[in-house]
Design a protein around this nucleic acid. Structure first.
Lengths: 213, 213, 213, 213
DNA sequence: GATGAATGAGTATTCATTCAT
DNA sequence: CATGAATGAATACTCATTCAT
């Protein structure tokens, strides 16, 4: 009969928020942000529409929260190698990480990709979370800010360093470009694979490492 | 001032339809299908909403017509090589074709990609036009129907044949997979590049040919 | 640490109710009744929404309680002169009272005015609390019931009596009307003055007395 | 069978817009802006909600259009006397105008008053349309901009000039203040009178002229 | 008494589609 | 063939009120 403690309320809130975000991510990713209605999310999460708005100020804020959370989780995955120098083994480790996080957060990447694909949303979120708008273009000037830019810089330096051992015919920026191309291809392929074949997945990763390490 | 002949009417009709489709494609691709209103398309095409419905039964039918037309144009681009056998030079030619059609039809590909990214739309169109739902997955069984499946079959055979010259360490299906991966990466990169750097573009194409021919 | 007596409970209850009403009056008056949410009032009063409903059955009942209380306070301000006869000095005293109560209860008058201005609310409350719906109109028949009617009757008689001294050209009902007009103008002017200039305020009051005493 | 001409369409549009604005004004004025739903306006105007939005971008824009139109009509009522000098007869004429426009546009003034009475709306519209926020306060500094300010300036000068004939005991600014007070009282009284008694109305106007000319 | 999570009926707004002219 | 006024179903969002704890 005694009222719930603030901690209990906080717990309820966090659990419900997590539930809503989980359901919303699933539908945003698979059906698209615009096509997913609040009604659907609420029904699927077993709550009322009103409660949704108790936790998130708007549909957009819900999307934002999902992205923020996911980006944070992806960030925390890459806490190593932040010194800016990459040894070949660290490079390999990085590729293995990036491919495993693909599996781990497949649904989020689906959503992320979808957002990238739409002008409007891209402009709103890309700069905030990724720090670059040229992600899909050939990025020549290396941007300093943000996580992704930082990684790209580190990797660029890795490729530039390889020129010393590979000889005069080696075009490091072209190789970098091909590497990024391949990673994107890998990404887009496996994001939309419903039943990833582990053997092929691993073989592909190993081959990428073989080609670009 | 003599009345128009039925042929002339038909011509006018076709021109108007083409104009509408062109405008719609532009907006569908850049703003998104759901975010583009019929009103906007009609205004931009300089006609009334009513007339729109005279030409196309619904918004969806308009989309469908756009895709059909574009897919047809892309098809006709590849009229060669339909005999199912690919020589190395034909393979190179095919890559050059596929990359140039990327530039040629960039707007369509943008739209296409956007549609692929949504379950519902994917299910509705992919099978119809492309003949496979596993496009984004690791396709092992080679599907026979349709254009894309046909091409994949031809290319698969190209890679299988290479085993004979490349030796026992060569895994043709893995190489095929890497090739597809790379092409997808190339595709997704350049679709969303606003100002494609021709030099880099060509260098990348050449490198792909070098790697997989 | 002895348990509170029923009286103490009652006191606490009354204090809380008063606090809620005070906060609510402030927001109702300044932001509008409809635009003020229960959540806001509860938060501002430092209590929970649930408790609000422990004290007041509904938002409307809260409004009702506020008006009742304020009207009662205004009533009690005018406990003199209830014998129905007004001497000139009592008339002056009445004007000074009515203008000072304007300052005293400015926030309430703001709310009151806002309510008057809306048909629905006016109909609901005006009759109950003021005893007339013609408050804003030219009232000829003098209504007997209620406080305001009583005052108007008393004042009407005051003006009628003045005819004897003012001579045949004096139209007492017209003068009464002008007096009421002027009082309303004074009222509406000062309710919405944020920083009332005391000198002007007093000069205006004196001038009104000069004109109508 | 031939399509409507642009003129016909324009006519339809203007008639419907006028109808909607008329109905909306009535309900906004009598029930309050916030309490009046779009559904109600549409039903009362005999059209669908959707059509409302064909003509007005939002509820607020509808309100804005109503005010703009009404203010324009009131402005056009006062095209005389814009030279800034007021003779006594012009002053009388002005009062007769202002009181007759009260009758003419009673419903609008009801709405206007209601808006004034709410902080939020007041801030949004008052400055735009009236050019002063101190309307309800004792305005000492005379503002130059806008219509209302212009009139107040002209009238102020009228009262200042009267000092010369009225003698040293005459306080022109106090009289101005009393005049404004009385006009406001007149205004608020007659806005909310449902059946205005013409004789009383005219007598009141004459008495005001008598007092302040 | 006290809390705030939960509800649901209601509100403004959008937009594909129809249809009288 | 051509127009755009008109519709209505759907959608995001609000908020007074209830209720388990």
């Amino acid at each position: 009969m005694s009222p719930r403690t603030p901690q209990q309320f906080e717990e309820i809130r966090e659990e419900k928020k997590a539930l809503i975000m989980e359901v919303a991510l699933k539908y945003f990713a698979n059906e698209g942000y615009h096509r997913t209605t609040i009604t659907r999310i609420a029904r699927e999460a077993g709550i009322s529409k009103g409660l949704m708005y108790n936790y998130f100020e708007s549909k957009e804020e819900l999307l934002s929260a999902i992205i923020q959370k996911s980006v944070y989780e992806v960030y925390s995955f890459f806490d190593v190698n932040r010194d800016g120098y990459l040894s070949p083994d660290e490079f390999e480790y990085f590729i293995r990480k990036i491919t495993s996080v693909l599996k781990e957060k497949q649904v989020f990447w689906k959503l992320f990709f979808q957002l990238m694909v739409q002008n409007e949303v891209r402009d709103r979120f890309l700069e905030t979370f990724v720090g670059t708008r040229s992600m899909f273009g050939v990025t020549r000037e290396i941007e300093e800010r943000h996580f992704v830019s930082g990684i790209i810089k580190t990797i660029t330096e890795y490729f530039l360093r390889k020129k010393e051992t590979k000889g005069p015919d080696y075009d490091p920026l072209l190789e970098l470009n091909m590497f990024i191309l391949t990673m994107k291809g890998f990404w887009v392929t496996y994001i939309y694979s419903e039943n990833v074949d582990d053997e092929y997945f691993n073989n592909s990763v190993n081959r990428i490492i073989e080609m670009y390490k």
